[in-house]
Amino acid sequence: MGDHFQPQPPPAANDKPAVWDLVVQDLERDEAPLSTLKAPFPWSTRDLMALVRADARARDAQGRKRYGVPLQAGNGRDAPVDAYQEALDLAVYLRQALEEHASRFVPDAELYVREHLSGLYNIALHSVWRLRWLLFSRDGR
Score class of each variant (00 low, 15 high):
D108C: 11
K65A: 10
A109M: 12
G140T: 03
P107W: 12
F105S: 07
E110W: 08
R114D: 10
T36Q: 09
Y112S: 15
D55H: 13
A13W: 06
R64M: 02
N75M: 02
F41N: 11
Q62I: 07
Q25S: 12
A73M: 11
A50N: 07
V92L: 14
V106Y: 14
N75L: 05
Y67F: 12
F41G: 08
S35L: 06
L27T: 01
L131S: 02
S127T: 12
D26G: 14
L131A: 02
N14V: 01
N122H: 15
D89P: 07
T45R: 08
A79M: 15
L34Y: 00
E28P: 04
P7R: 03
Q62R: 11
Y84S: 00
R53E: 09
L48Q: 07
W43F: 15
G140V: 03
T36S: 10
V24I: 14
L51C: 13
D47R: 07
Q25D: 13
R104A: 11
R132A: 08
A32S: 11
V128A: 07
R53D: 06
N14G: 01
Q62H: 11
S137C: 15
Q25Y: 02
A87Q: 03
D26L: 12
H116N: 15
A61T: 05
E110A: 15
L120D: 04
E110Q: 14
N14I: 00
R46P: 04
R77I: 00
D3C: 09
L48T: 08
A58Q: 08
Y84N: 01
G140N: 01
L98I: 08
A97P: 03
P33Y: 02
P17M: 01
R77Y: 05
L34K: 09
R95S: 09
I123M: 14
L131F: 05
A56G: 01
V19I: 04
A73N: 10
L135F: 03
P11F: 02
D89Y: 13
D55E: 15
L134A: 08
H116M: 11
A87E: 05
Y112T: 15
P42D: 12
R141G: 12
L135E: 04
L34T: 02
R53C: 06
G68T: 01
